[in-house]
Nucleic acid binder design. Structure first.
Lengths: 244, 244
DNA sequence: GCCTAGGTCCCGTGC
DNA sequence: GCACGGGGCCTAGGC
């Protein structure tokens, strides 16, 4: 059930929030001071902000800019509502790590409770989609390439694709869905070094991505690693095929 | 000026949104379908969601769970409002990279426009704060340690602190504000290898953080790198000093 | 604009 | 619960 309070008293507001926080998304516009303390520390000067509280415990304080909240607590946090002398205090507590957001609301302008869907979103075109496609089309990597393992676990992390080339040499493949930077090359190098040390023979290392920064490419080349550019449209081409 | 529309007609809603999107944060609750296409692709089944649109172009569609919007466009996106036969279409366009979010609103429950602060938040306790502190207290790293450069730029990335130990040996210091994982060790190793190759002499490499995962520690040790644990409260201790 | 790296990252997955 | 790595990452800072 939708419901709205315009310029409610603190008492009304407290009742409303307590009654609805467990089931609805709450939106609160008020003049407030907000403080956060936990892994870091932050605070907002007194002013008008918008609070969004979700039934899963998510607590967010939004300003007029940016996608990220100015201050927040993630899902799983617990909400406490407390009437103070001249204000309404909202306390959000996260237990691990211990973090606390306190909003002291002074002039309540608006509170709304909204019932929205509990969906989990599904995104297409992720790295995992690209790895799927490469596993199904190993010839794309090169003629005669065969997949040995996907998400191969090592002591230094998971290798996207471990395979073998037509000459029988082990190949480590690292996949990125967007432009690869130095970190991606580093990751590949780490896996290659690890396998080399483990097997006593150096495997080939191939980075697959739609693009690579020039310094990352240089770093890759100076380490004897290889690069394969994948069409930026590959995933969407595949998607179209899937939906046909 | 605050303003709210409850169950408005599409025409009313379109006027309201056009008039206020440039200056206020808009909140829209409606039954809608939403589609995203750009770097990836996603869509929401018809249902009730909450849209937040900020004056800077941020466009977010929220469900009842999680901190992140189900679908969004970041700041800088442009908003188009279009009346359709039986619906109100909101189109958010980001130019680079080209991305598009389309929300087709069917049953408008609520629209509110809210004037909130334009603040940029200030957080204390970041990695940069920790680096600051170490630069001011080089003895913490070790007796006789001196700082040569901060944010020292190399071909393979920026070194947090480049210094020299009491025996005159070059030291690469990588700092993490929270638990360090394999990636942090990798980063340090990359810088150390680079300096080694550049100078013909291997520098020491020290990772400074409040904690390190056991596999990362193993990886660090097997590469001849060093670890210094920093008190998790160090930053807040420093902060207290600052505010005294 | 590109590139680099941090983030109170969040988030899912696997142990 | 911890740990690891992806993300439509977002965001800030340099060049």
């Amino acid at each position: 059930m939708e419901n709205y309070l315009i310029k409610p008293s603190n008492e009304e507001a407290a009742r409303f929030i307590k009654a609805r926080a467990a089931s609805s998304v709450l939106l609160i516009k008020a003049v407030m001071r907000v403080d956060y303390e936990g892994r870091a520390k932050a605070g907002l000067e007194a002013g008008s902000y918008l609070i969004m509280i979700k039934p899963d415990g998510t607590f967010m304080v939004h300003g007029s800019k940016k996608e990220k909240p100015l201050i927040w607590n993630p899902p799983g946090s617990r909400l406490y509502v407390e009437l103070q002398d001249n204000a309404l205090a909202l306390l959000s507590i996260r237990s691990s790590p211990r973090e606390r957001v306190i909003a002291i609301l002074h002039e309540l302008e608006f509170i709304g409770s909204f019932d929205v869907e509990h969906v989990d979103n599904k995104v297409v075109g992720t790295e995992s989609d690209l790895v799927d496609w490469l596993v199904s089309n190993p010839g794309f990597i090169e003629q005669g390439f065969t997949v040995l393992e996907r998400e191969f676990e090592t002591a230094v992390g998971k290798i996207d694709i471990l395979g073998r080339d037509s000459r029988g040499r082990i190949v480590v493949v690292e996949v990125k869905r967007s432009q690869a930077g130095p970190d991606a090359v580093n990751q590949l190098k780490r896996y290659v070094d690890h396998i080399a040390q483990k097997r006593g023979e150096r495997p080939r290392g191939i980075l697959v991505s739609p693009d690579i920064s020039s310094s990352a490419y240089f770093y890759l080349k100076t380490n004897g690693l290889e690069y394969i550019k994948v069409n930026r449209n590959l995933t969407s081409l595949r998607k179209i095929t899937d939906y046909s």
